[in-house]
Amino acid sequence: MKPVVGATPRVVKSDQEWREGLSPEEYAVLRQAATERPFTGEYTDTHDTGVYECRACGAELFRSETKFDSHCGWPSFFDPADSEAVLLREDRAMGMKRIEVLCASCHSHLGHVFEGEGYGTPTDQRYCINSIALRMVPQG
């Protein structure tokens, strides 16, 4: 994974420690920026109330109040739980320009953010996040 310029992760582990703490599928997405297949993730259609944490480090990333049905195949959120919960960086992989979303605490890959798609959310953004990168903690 490419380092994020100007940002230091609060959770730092060796590659071996990440491999030991994550399943092979989790490691591929979180540490190698892979993408899970659409419509296969645990949280794609979840509507429970709770907090979505980074599966790698436990940092709070999103809240259920900002989750919406985009029908894109991955969980979608219109805003992070905190303005500093995620980091954004340009991603030119796969022959296109996108904005990658990373956990600010451990710099794990979460997914991508898109703007101007017309979903009618308060931010006009869609944080398209891999379910396997998240852990939902129910509340209420």
Score class of each variant (00 low, 15 high):
48 D>G: 01
94 M>F: 15
131 S>Q: 05
71 H>R: 13
96 M>S: 11
22 L>C: 08
31 R>D: 00
98 R>H: 04
116 G>V: 06
114 F>N: 06
110 L>V: 02
93 A>K: 07
54 C>W: 12
9 P>Q: 06
106 C>R: 01
6 G>R: 03
19 R>E: 05
72 C>R: 02
50 G>L: 10
29 V>D: 09
93 A>M: 02
44 T>M: 00
66 T>N: 06
47 H>Y: 04
68 F>Y: 15
136 M>F: 11
32 Q>P: 03
116 G>F: 11
82 D>C: 04
130 N>D: 02
20 E>P: 00
20 E>V: 00
10 R>W: 01
61 L>I: 10
10 R>M: 01
120 G>R: 14
102 L>F: 02
19 R>S: 07
45 D>R: 13
32 Q>C: 07
97 K>C: 10
63 R>I: 11
135 R>W: 04
39 F>E: 11
92 R>D: 08
68 F>I: 08
89 R>N: 02
100 E>Y: 03
23 S>C: 09
99 I>E: 15
69 D>F: 06
104 A>H: 11
81 A>D: 02
103 C>M: 04
53 E>I: 02
17 E>I: 09
13 K>I: 00
20 E>C: 00
73 G>P: 13
87 L>E: 05
16 Q>V: 03
114 F>I: 07
91 D>S: 06
35 T>E: 08
42 E>N: 05
111 G>V: 03
60 E>A: 15
121 T>I: 04
125 Q>R: 15
91 D>R: 09
87 L>D: 05
87 L>W: 10
76 S>A: 15
108 S>I: 06
52 Y>S: 10
123 T>P: 05
66 T>R: 04
14 S>A: 09
118 G>N: 13
72 C>D: 05
92 R>M: 10
44 T>W: 14
28 A>C: 01
38 P>L: 12
14 S>K: 09
76 S>D: 03
31 R>W: 03
51 V>N: 08
